[in-house]
Nucleic acid binder design. Structure first.
Length: 361
DNA sequence: GGGATTTGACCCGG
DNA sequence: CCGGGTCAAATCCC
C-alpha cells in the first residue's frame, strides 16, 4: 500500500517535473523568434499531456483508495517477467544457424511469460492530411518493422515494430500499428514495454527542433500502400547518447537474463534541467521490477496533437480496478488520440533513493 | 555492403 | 484448430 503511494508519488513528481521542464522549453521558445508555431504548440500539448497524466494518476489513486475498483488483477508476476523477454535470437548468439529451433524451445518458454506482464498502452492518432499532423505518427523513437499481419476483421494489416536498438542495447520496447478500418486516418498504436535504450524522444535541447524533422516531411497518408506505416528516421541525439555511455552498466549481457536488469537504470537528461528532474524512479526493481522506467515511458504522448483520455490500469493491490477513470482533456483538440495505458506495477520497495551525482560527473 | 523491410513459416495461447 | 505475435531468409534501398 504504502509502496504504491510512494511509487505513485515518485512518478507524479517526475511527471510534474517533466512538465515543468517542458514549460521552460516553451518559455525559451516564446522568446525565440525563430521558433515555429508548431513547435510551441507541440510543447503546449506536451505540457497539457503531462498535467493530464499527473492529474489522472491522482484521480485514479483517489478512486483506488476510495472505491477500490480494480477489475483485473492483471497478474504481474513482477518477479521475473518482462525482462526475460530475450527471444533467443537476441541472447543466443545470432550467428547460430546450426540446429534449428530445437534447443530454443526452453528459452521461448519463459519468453512467453513476459508478454502478460509487459506494460502496454494504446493510443489512437488521427492524421488529417495537410493539417501538419503528419508527424503524429512519429513518437521520436526509431522503430524497426519486424512483421506485418492481417488481422481478422481488420481492414488493414497490423504492423509490428520494435526498437531499433533492441539488439545493441537490449531495448525491449515494441509497438503495433493498426490502421482503423472505418476511419483510415486513424491509427491505433499500441506500445509495449519500456524503452531501455538511449533515445530521448521528447526531451530535446530547447534550441534543437522539437520533434519535427526539418528536412523530412512525411506523409503517413501516403504510405505506400495505404497500409503500412514507415518508421521514421530520427536525429541522432548524441548528447544523451554520450552522456549515457559513460554510465551504461553492463548492457551487453542484459539480454540474456533478467537478473542483469536490476543493475541498469535510466533517466532522462534534458539539457536544461539537471537538477532533481533526473532523479527518476531508477532501479525500480531492486527486487523484481521489470525494466527501466523513464518519464518517456510515462509520457508516451509526445505528439503534436494530444490527448486524450487516459486510462490507468494498475494492478497494485490486486483485484478490481474499474479503471473507468477516464479523464478527458479539456482541450478540445480536433483529433484527440486516445491513450490507454496499463502498467503492471507490483509492489515496489519505496525505500530506494538514487544519487546520480556520481554518474554525472 | 549493411541496415531496413517484406513475407511466409513458426510458435503459443485460448 | 485458429489467430495473433515473432522469427528469419530473401529482398530492397541507400
Amino acid at each position: 500500500m504504502e509502496n504504491v503511494s510512494n511509487l505513485e508519488q515518485k512518478i507524479l513528481i517526475s511527471e510534474l517535473t517533466h512538465g515543468r521542464a517542458l514549460a521552460k522549453q516553451l518559455q525559451i521558445h516564446l522568446s525565440m523568434p525563430s521558433s515555429s508555431r508548431e513547435a510551441r504548440e507541440s510543447l503546449v500539448q506536451k505540457i497539457l499531456a503531462s498535467y493530464e497524466k499527473a492529474l489522472s494518476m491522482l484521480k485514479y489513486n483517489g478512486s483506488l483508495a476510495a472505491t477500490t475498483t480494480i477489475t483485473e488483477p492483471v497478474t504481474a508476476p513482477i518477479g521475473n517477467a518482462l525482462a526475460s523477454e530475450s527471444p533467443s535470437s537476441l541472447s543466443a548468439s545470432p550467428h547460430s544457424e546450426d540446429s534449428d529451433r530445437d534447443f530454443k524451445e526452453h528459452e521461448i518458454k519463459d519468453a512467453s511469460r513476459k508478454r502478460k506482464s509487459t506494460p502496454r498502452w494504446t493510443k489512437q492518432v488521427s492524421v488529417s492530411p495537410g493539417s501538419g499532423l503528419e508527424q503524429s505518427l512519429d513518437d521520436g523513437y526509431v522503430w524497426r518493422k519486424y512483421g506485418q499481419k492481417d488481422i481478422l476483421g481488420a481492414k488493414y494489416p497490423r504492423g509490428y515494430y520494435r526498437c531499433t536498438h533492441r539488439n545493441v542495447q537490449g531495448c525491449l520496447a515494441t509497438k503495433q500499428v493498426q490502421r482503423s478500418g472505418d476511419d483510415p486516418t486513424i491509427f491505433e498504436i499500441t506500445y509495449r514495454g519500456w524503452h531501455t535504450c538511449n533515445q530521448a524522444p521528447d526531451q530535446l535541447p530547447p534550441n534543437s527542433l522539437p520533434q519535427e524533422k526539418p528536412g523530412q516531411p512525411q506523409d503517413p497518408i501516403n504510405l505506400q500502400n495505404q497500409n503500412q506505416i514507415q518508421p521514421q528516421e530520427q536525429q541522432p541525439q548524441d548528447l544523451l547518447f554520450n552522456f549515457r555511455n559513460g554510465l551504461k552498466v553492463k548492457t551487453e549481457n542484459l539480454e540474456t537474463n533478467a537478473q542483469t536488469f536490476p543493475n541498469s537504470f535510466f533517466f532522462h537528461s534534458s539539457s536544461n534541467t539537471k537538477d532533481e528532474t533526473n532523479v527518476f524512479v531508477s532501479n525500480l526493481q531492486g527486487n523484481n521490477f521489470m525494466g527501466h522506467f523513464s518519464p518517456s515511458y510515462l509520457s508516451p504522448a509526445t505528439w503534436g496533437s494530444n490527448i486524450f483520455s487516459l486510462e490507468a490500469n494498475h494492478n497494485f493491490q490486486g483485484p478490481e480496478s474499474d479503471l473507468d477513470e477516464i479523464v478527458s482533456a479539456g482541450t478540445s483538440v480536433s483529433n484527440s488520440p486516445i491513450v490507454d495505458l496499463e502498467y503492471p506495477f507490483g509492489t515496489f520497495d519505496p525505500g530506494f533513493t538514487f544519487d546520480i551525482s556520481g554518474f554525472i560527473s
